[in-house]
């Protein structure tokens, strides 16, 4: 039974990850326009991917904070609106070629590898590219990753009851896209942190039957 609700904006990369045989028993797609309290009641965690519909999330923010108040976990990646979050996100140019042109200068310069999601990751596995930065985070936040300018990439807070982990990395979307080959490392740790179950150590594969007329929507 799925333990993690993946808030779904109808985007194919969200779909590719949640329907992949490796992850499909652990993630449940929650179409954002149908999201309600009943849909999340039995879940351990919510994952809010990059390319989410932030306006609709803002309308439904009480649901997210109620979920946290129940002591559960929420993971937020990529860009995020300040309208529902006590933080300031700012856009920055995406550099996804640093490892070719300037491999000694990655978009993340400091990482707390004690965090369960990051334990055992190499620096390359802990950062591929970022989508903007946080220039303000809640006072209670623990900073987990920063860039060379000291701007926040990843942070976590327990201020709302459960745990909110926010990052401008985009592991869910990029792992769905499958153009970066090492993301099983990050996603498997993230999945275990969210729900307590570590996916099998195998490469993500695609179930072709879940596409087209057989799409699970």
């Amino acid at each position: 039974m799925a333990k993690i609700g993946l808030l779904f904006n109808g985007v194919w990369s969200h779909y590719a990850l949640a329907t992949a045989p490796k992850y499909r028993d652990l993630y449940q797609l929650l179409y954002v326009h149908d999201l309600d309290a009943a849909a999340v009641h039995d879940l351990d965690a919510l994952a809010i991917p990059f390319q989410s519909n932030q306006a609709v999330l803002t309308e439904k923010k009480d649901l997210i904070y109620d979920f946290l108040r129940a002591g559960k976990k929420v993971f937020l990646e990529g860009d995020s609106s300040t309208a529902w979050l006590d933080a300031q996100w700012e856009d920055r140019p995406v550099n996804n070629y640093w490892w070719v042109t300037d491999p000694t200068n990655p978009p993340v310069s400091a990482t707390n590898y004690d965090h369960p999601v990051y334990q055992g990751l190499t620096p390359r596995q802990a950062c591929w590219h970022t989508h903007g930065v946080y220039t303000h985070v809640p006072e209670s936040a623990e900073i987990i990753q920063t860039n060379a300018e000291g701007e926040v990439i990843t942070w976590q807070t327990h201020a709302y009851g459960g745990t909110l982990l926010a990052t401008t990395l985009d592991p869910i979307v990029e792992h769905g896209v499958q153009q970066i080959t090492h993301l099983d490392n990050y996603m498997d740790r993230l999945t275990q942190w969210l729900c307590g179950v570590r996916p099998a150590p195998e490469r993500l594969t695609i179930d072709a039957a879940a596409y087209g007329a057989g799409a699970l929507v």
Partner: peptide
């Protein structure tokens, strides 16, 4: 990934 485009279908493949 859904079947809404007449006559054509995108297929994910890695």
């Amino acid at each position: 990934f859904t079947a809404w485009v007449p006559g054509n279908q995108w297929v994910m493949d890695n």
